[in-house]
Nucleic acid binder design. Structure first.
Lengths: 345, 345
DNA sequence: CGCAAATCTGTTATCGATATCAAGGGATGC
DNA sequence: GCATCCCTTGATATCGATAACAGATTTGCG
């Protein structure tokens, strides 16, 4: 692979390339980046030297001198949730083609972990950062503000945003779902969610449920809190059993996400409880599994990909604005949600 | 947030901290990293200065002078597949606590995209890299070899590994599944997969299926290739309809992954075809949906988390060995797979 | 033909940290 | 009491690229 007789001591540097091509490092630098003014012949020679040496640009050094790291950070709660992986894809696709790289981090729904991640991201001087939700530790807020880079919060409408926002009200969305169920005749509606507020969006959905129940004057709210959020399919199955045994008159269940809704539907199936005959079940998030299973599950559709894409576009505009010395004003972008009526209710 | 009357011009540097604490930058550097010899009182003063200034270490500069980037790269095909997200979690957890950060990339099952990703990762000089599968472009191989860092290939057993390996034979695993179905009395076994070899592991599974069919002397193989890999739940549902209409005597279907198997099972349900009465359906990967749906789906269980964890451990050992000037020899670690017999066959 | 503009390339300084070596000062040992 | 060692701190050089400016060459155009 390497020229014999000349043992490589370490990675070749730009100086090695420059020497081989008979030019200065500055010329090499220009040849390797678009937009540099350089003679075609010189460029050809340099590219050849790069190939022969197997040279790979050291972006670390470049970042230091140009003060542009060339990457943006995005933090999402979980890699396993298709809503957030859609968002990550949206960000990825929006960033594609630009000379920016995406660095992803997973907070595991924990604000403390978010704080550690934010700091370790900032150490690498991202040009912008996308976070999920509006609840952060005090120190996280301070870090984000002091970092002096554009910030976008997603999947939520924070009361006191750190920077820009691309999100929706989880409470309103869940409330809308409850109202729709009510309109279809359901009266004893329960809620299935996780047993802590760790998942703040889940907590907001429960809030929206409770509020809607009150608005509609329905009997006291029937809430099953089960398992560490985000709750799984399996836990959804267990929770529906609890719900029905605790309040036998329940005629519908709103689940904190499609995963638990799916688990609930399948468990009912297994026990011979008809869905929606015995009980209607609705989810949240419009995961593929809800579209595909039998019966198909009523849910709230959120365009996770769109959120990611819009957040990234907004971030890029903000970064661009800052580069041009014309910062843009903080924006709050509301994304729509839709209740999708399917076979399970 | 900032001290009034003293407008910040830019991010504070270590020199600012040093000045405020009345020490040299070298002392600040030592105070901020574990293991530096430093007086407790000095450290306290420095930490105080850091807090007051809101200083965040610039790791870019640190990387340049210490020649240690402090991160490892991992490339997986897709963020949406729970097998690979499990692997990513395994890597994350193995890396946690060490002073290493994980940078994830998604190849979208495309070797060309992998090549671009590898290069852009290498630009940032990772200390090691984990890739998925054993098929790469020539240039990717060269980049990885020239990079002179530990490499681990996962989820496969490459014929000619680039570095270390943590994987299993997808062909053998699929073959085992077919043999088990045969043992249970199935004779007309079909296969449902994607319509290209873009997903190399999927292609290997099809190969294992074809080989097993030949070994068992079963009638010619019935393969439905449907949709761009990785095929979705929805596509699995469409494929099973094709399979049955094309070969009405088929009595079992092996699906390239649990997602398509699930889609197939649900579609059968919808059409009133009993599973496994009319047809047995098996998947691959042991996704949560297969454990949870009704009927539960027979599948091949692979410990994706374990693969990630083991790959990271191996990589860390290799990195450590290299630091100590005692490189470790290339290792091939086989991970077990199990056919899990469930209700769908 | 001549001068200005455009194109291409090189020199020098610099980004912000850490490696390395050296030195000051107090504790310890004999 | 003096040498030795350890602990702590600092000075200087350096990592590998790019910014900014300047110089050299070519091109454009009246």
């Amino acid at each position: 692979m390497h020229p014999a007789g000349k043992p490589r001591r370490s990675q070749p540097t730009m100086a090695d390339v420059a020497e081989r091509a008979g030019v200065s490092t500055m010329t090499v630098s220009r040849a390797l980046r678009k937009g540099g003014s350089i003679a075609a012949e010189t460029q050809r020679r340099i590219i050849a030297a790069v190939d022969e040496l197997g040279y790979v640009l050291d972006q670390t050094a470049g970042t230091l001198s140009s003060k542009r790291s060339g990457f943006i950070a995005a933090l999402i709660p979980s890699i396993n949730n298709s809503n957030f992986s859609d968002t990550a894809r949206g960000v990825t696709e929006a960033v594609e083609g630009r000379d920016l790289q995406l660095l992803l981090g997973y907070t595991d729904y924990l604000v403390q972990k978010e704080e550690r991640l934010v700091e370790s991201m900032l150490r690498r001087r991202p040009e912008g950062i996308i976070v999920t939700g509006g609840r952060h530790t005090e120190r996280t807020r301070r870090l984000l503000l002091d970092a002096d880079i554009p910030v976008v919060e997603t999947w939520d409408i924070p009361a006191d945003p750190v920077g820009h926002v691309v999100g929706f009200s989880n409470a309103d969305a869940a409330g809308k779902l409850v109202h729709d169920l009510h309109a279809r005749g359901y009266r004893n509606i329960g809620f299935i969610g996780g047993s802590s507020n760790r998942d703040t969006r889940g907590a907001d959905r429960r809030l929206g449920y409770t509020r809607a129940i009150a608005e509609l004057g329905l009997p006291r709210s029937r809430v099953i809190s089960f398992g560490k959020p985000p709750i799984s399919m399996e836990q959804g199955g267990q929770a529906i059993v609890h719900l029905i045994s605790q309040w036998p008159d329940v005629d519908a269940a709103v689940c904190v996400s499609d995963l638990s809704a799916f688990g609930a539907v399948m468990e009912c199936h297994r026990r011979g409880w008809s869905v929606p005959g015995r009980i209607g079940i609705a989810g949240f998030g419009d995961f593929e599994v809800s579209r595909c299973c039998h019966p198909r599950i009523t849910t709230v559709s959120i365009d996770g990909f769109g959120i990611g894409h819009a957040a990234a576009e907004l971030l890029l505009r903000a970064i661009e604005g800052r580069r041009r010395q014309t910062p843009i004003a903080p924006e709050v972008m509301l994304v729509p949600f839709h209740v999708i009526q399917r076979e399970s209710t």
